[in-house]
């Protein structure tokens, strides 16, 4: 099944990744000449991608993807900095190999596994999803990953498992905001209801654009829940717990009136201080109007059923 969102991005609205890269090369040359610093940090060298010819997920949207340079340089990572430029730079210090993930709680088989061992048991696919941040910008990202449900089923959840809690890595040595104990409760944690976690759209992603995940984008393992605001899609996961009760989550705990547990993308429920009715699709240029935000970020056909008797204004 291909997700046909009503309004796909017109080709004119977004820069072709190739054109974008070429333009950037010219600009880089110009910059070198003028010896001015670019606002964008070149993070990855142009190596061969790690995966080639990945099968395409049946959920992939038929959309032009956002240039990787934008995805890699416009991302929030509050453990490092509140500023996207600085966090991208600082995140390079995070060691991600080797990496292990604990799966525990209400499951038959709990344990701690090396990421490479987990990957050996999963079939990776490319998933082209929309990504909508609570800050009212959006992207289209070709993730490399597998369904979270496939991993959870291997651990055999008990019938008492009603929620899933995710915990990010705690490394105050390299994460300045953790060291200063600033703002959010660290380590960052997020949660899903079990049916949300088992939904085939919900991914654990290990890369994008056919390559390993850039550190600033949540390497080596992050969650992707395309119908929820980006802050739900927790980065650098070290622990997955199945729970009887709803876990507390970082943003919800910090500002419960502003960031709900569900955080479903919903143009009809504004954030208390700003509208969520429209979004800036990154890669679209000047004089391009904003995109109208869709309910469940355009994934209503797949996920609306999960919330059918719920008042979405109350459970925002």
């Amino acid at each position: 099944m291909i997700i046909k969102t009503k309004k796909t991005i017109p080709a004119s609205e977004i820069t072709d990744p190739y054109v974008f890269k070429e333009r950037r090369k010219i600009i880089k040359a110009l910059l070198a000449l003028t010896a001015m610093g670019s606002g964008i940090v070149p993070v990855l060298a142009d190596n061969k991608p790690r995966w080639t010819n990945l099968p395409e997920s049946s959920f992939s949207a038929d959309l032009m993807t956002t240039p990787s340079e934008i995805i890699e340089n416009y991302t929030n990572y509050y453990e490092f900095s509140y500023n996207k430029h600085d966090s991208t730079k600082l995140a390079q210090q995070l060691a991600t190999d080797p990496w292990s993930v604990e799966i525990s709680g209400e499951v038959e088989k709990s344990g701690t596994y090396f990421l490479e061992d987990i990957l050996r048991q999963q079939t990776l696919q490319e998933h082209i999803y929309r990504f909508r941040c609570v800050e009212a910008w959006s992207m289209v990202i070709p993730w490399v990953g597998f369904a979270l449900g496939d991993l959870l089923r291997k651990a055999q959840p008990l019938s008492t498992a009603k929620f899933v809690k995710f915990t990010s890595v705690y490394r105050p040595e390299v994460m300045p905001r953790q060291k200063q104990n600033n703002m959010l409760e660290w380590p960052y944690s997020e949660g899903l209801r079990i049916d949300e976690a088992m939904h085939p759209l919900t991914l654990l992603a290990v890369g994008m654009y056919g390559d390993t995940m850039p550190k600033q984008n949540g390497a080596p393992l992050r969650l992707v829940v395309p119908w929820k605001y980006g802050f739900k899609s927790i980065k650098a996961i070290v622990k997955i717990e199945l729970l009887k009760k709803a876990p507390t989550t970082s943003w919800n705990k910090f500002a419960p009136g502003e960031y709900g547990f569900y955080a479903n993308v919903n143009p009809n429920v504004p954030h208390p201080r700003w509208s969520q009715n429209s979004e800036r699709l990154l890669g679209s240029g000047f004089f391009t109007p904003r995109r109208e935000t869709e309910l469940f970020n355009g994934y209503g056909e797949q996920v609306a059923g999960l919330y059918k008797d719920m008042n979405l204004r109350h459970f925002f």
Binding site: P270, P272, R273, W274, S275, Q276, N277, S278, R280, F286, F287, T288, P289, R290, E292
Partner: peptide
């Protein structure tokens, strides 16, 4: 008004109404 919204008034109106900081 122009660069960001390209003068699409209905979206601008909703954005302003719902964004108290504006």
């Amino acid at each position: 008004l122009v660069l960001d919204h390209f003068l699409v008034w209905p979206i601008i109106a909703t954005d302003i109404l719902e964004s108290s900081y504006i």
